[in-house]
Amino acid sequence: MLVNATGHAFAGKRIDNKEGDFWQMPQGGVDKGEDPANAVLRELWEETGARAEHVEVVDRLPEELFYDLPDELIGKLWGGKYLGQRQTWYLARFTGSDADIDLDAHDPPEFCEWKWIEPRLLPELIVPFKRDVYRAIVEGFAGLI
């Protein structure tokens, strides 16, 4: 969860989302042998263009969060290898300006649009099968945002 100085969270509209007006926070995987704290900074740069000098990692949720894909997506995403995801979420504060966000920093880009929103709105903007995860993220970081 990337938040700015006013406590609003970054939400991006995925380029590959063809169904619905869904927005999500940056997320990504940890490469083999990569330190998770370094993966946070790398993924934020790849998806938002935010450089490490504009990001302060604040905290991590103590528990992993899980979601399952709905039946209609099983076998269609991630080459059919996975049924859902196990995620570790970090809270990071963005100290740069909006001009420091560059969705084209990485090729291919993940998002086609972005905005800052109140964190409490995040669960309503994400695809329905991830809503419980987003509620847990917002609740887990509420006192630190």
Rank of each mutant, 00 (worst) to 15 (best):
residue 130 K to T: 01
residue 112 C to W: 08
residue 41 L to K: 09
residue 54 H to T: 11
residue 82 Y to G: 03
residue 137 I to D: 00
residue 122 L to G: 03
residue 86 R to P: 14
residue 27 Q to P: 04
residue 101 I to R: 04
residue 102 D to Q: 13
residue 114 W to Q: 03
residue 93 R to K: 00
residue 20 G to W: 13
residue 143 G to W: 01
residue 29 G to Q: 15
residue 2 L to A: 08
residue 125 L to K: 10
residue 58 V to T: 03
residue 38 N to F: 14
residue 118 E to C: 01
residue 145 I to E: 08
residue 122 L to W: 02
residue 107 D to A: 14
residue 46 E to P: 01
residue 35 D to W: 10
residue 126 I to G: 10
residue 113 E to C: 04
residue 88 T to W: 10
residue 61 L to C: 03
residue 5 A to C: 11
residue 98 D to M: 08
residue 121 L to M: 11
residue 50 A to E: 06
residue 40 V to W: 09
residue 16 D to P: 03
residue 119 P to M: 03
residue 67 Y to I: 06
residue 51 R to L: 13
residue 24 Q to S: 13
residue 76 K to G: 10
residue 42 R to D: 03
residue 40 V to Q: 02
residue 57 V to G: 02
residue 121 L to T: 11
residue 52 A to L: 09
residue 64 E to H: 10
residue 142 A to H: 11
residue 81 K to I: 14
residue 92 A to T: 00
residue 86 R to Y: 12
residue 29 G to H: 14
residue 111 F to D: 06
residue 10 F to G: 04
residue 27 Q to Y: 10
residue 24 Q to V: 15
residue 137 I to H: 05
residue 55 V to W: 02
residue 92 A to C: 06
residue 44 L to G: 01
residue 53 E to L: 11
residue 145 I to L: 12
residue 135 R to G: 02
residue 56 E to F: 05
residue 105 A to H: 11
residue 101 I to D: 03
residue 65 L to S: 03
residue 100 D to M: 02
residue 18 K to R: 06
residue 93 R to H: 07
residue 121 L to F: 09
residue 130 K to V: 06
residue 58 V to S: 08
residue 38 N to A: 13
residue 65 L to H: 01
residue 21 D to C: 01
residue 103 L to W: 07
residue 138 V to A: 00
residue 40 V to E: 05
residue 53 E to S: 13
residue 106 H to C: 10
residue 124 E to T: 05
residue 66 F to E: 07
residue 14 R to H: 09
residue 141 F to P: 03
residue 129 F to D: 14
residue 13 K to V: 10
residue 76 K to L: 04
residue 114 W to L: 07
residue 62 P to H: 12
residue 101 I to V: 15
residue 129 F to T: 12
residue 125 L to P: 01
residue 104 D to C: 15
residue 92 A to W: 00
residue 47 E to S: 09
residue 101 I to E: 02
residue 46 E to N: 08
residue 25 M to Y: 03
residue 107 D to Y: 15
residue 77 L to E: 14
residue 118 E to P: 00
residue 69 L to W: 11
residue 103 L to T: 05
residue 89 W to Y: 08
residue 44 L to R: 00
residue 79 G to P: 02
residue 109 P to R: 15
residue 86 R to C: 13
residue 132 D to M: 13
residue 129 F to H: 15
residue 119 P to G: 06
residue 144 L to D: 01
residue 136 A to T: 12
residue 67 Y to K: 06
residue 99 A to R: 15
residue 101 I to H: 07
residue 42 R to A: 05
residue 115 K to I: 00
residue 134 Y to K: 04
residue 91 L to S: 07
residue 38 N to E: 15
residue 109 P to V: 09
residue 39 A to H: 07
